[in-house]
Amino acid sequence: MNIITGLINGMITSATPILLAALGGSLTYYAGIFNIAMEGMMLSGAFFGMLGSYYFHSWPMGILFAILGAILMALIFILFAVVLKMDEFITGIGLNLFSVGVTTYMLRQIFKVKGAFASPEIVPIPKIDIPWIKDIPVVGEIISGQNLIVYIALLATIVVSYLVFKTRFGLRLRAAGYNRTSLDTSGVSANRIRVWSLILCGVLCGLAGSFLSLGYVTLFSEGMSAGRGWISLAAVILVSGNPTGIALISLLFGFTDGLGLFMQRSLPSQFTSMVPYVATLVALFVYSVRLKKKQKI
């Protein structure tokens, strides 16, 4: 029983940052932006989250700083891709590398360290115990006692889903991606919608980043997003942006990650660490094969 709850908890933990970033990517996907900057936004969120928590000795400030840090990256993306109409792909790659550079530089400049920074002064985001439920055996261990961000991610899935499909903003968001000229001619600026989708993406990636540096572990290390932004991009593409689908795919990736840890007893850790990336390839493979079949019919 312990193994199974451990596996499920591991799955939830590794799924959370991917889910949050992918939800952000979903919003920009619907707005018709080829946004590959989630990786950079997440990394920036992780750094600034750690910074906020360290200076104010408080995790809410950490989360706030994480969100602001990620929004800063989103604003740079907006400046180049929306205002200056630069190629979104180049902006995204440039921004991701900018984020790596800025966080490494600031780590060196502020904390005088290379590689990683950990300190007891960094206050982690707490785990939430839900009364009553926590006493139920097995189920209680899973539903209760998760990190606050895990519950926020769950909530975010529902909110994003509602936002995209049930609100006026969502309708305009989808219109901006589907046919921006008709949205513009109907009197709503498609660019404004795109800007908002990017800022919201920043908020979600910031939360994902705060989970990396204040939830999962309590430290910041260079490049700690480790390709999670790319995996979340793959998740968005696989389900064409659908938030519920993203949640399921993220859990699947989380599961493979947990499985990788589990396999460490029999395989070198280098191979088990590959598992989520191999799983992404397999998922893309299944997706392509299904797409091919559909096209044949």
């Binding site: 480790a226 390709g227 790319w230 991009l233 793959a234 593409i237 590959m274 990336y277 191999v278 992404t280 390839l281 893309l284 493979f285 392509s288 094969v289 797409l291 091919k292």
Partner: peptide
């Protein structure tokens, strides 16, 4: 399989 090289190459980097 018509898998986009954009994502596959990124994943292959990590691998």
């Amino acid at each position: 399989f018509n898998m986009s090289e954009f994502i596959t190459t990124l994943m292959l980097n990590m691998i």
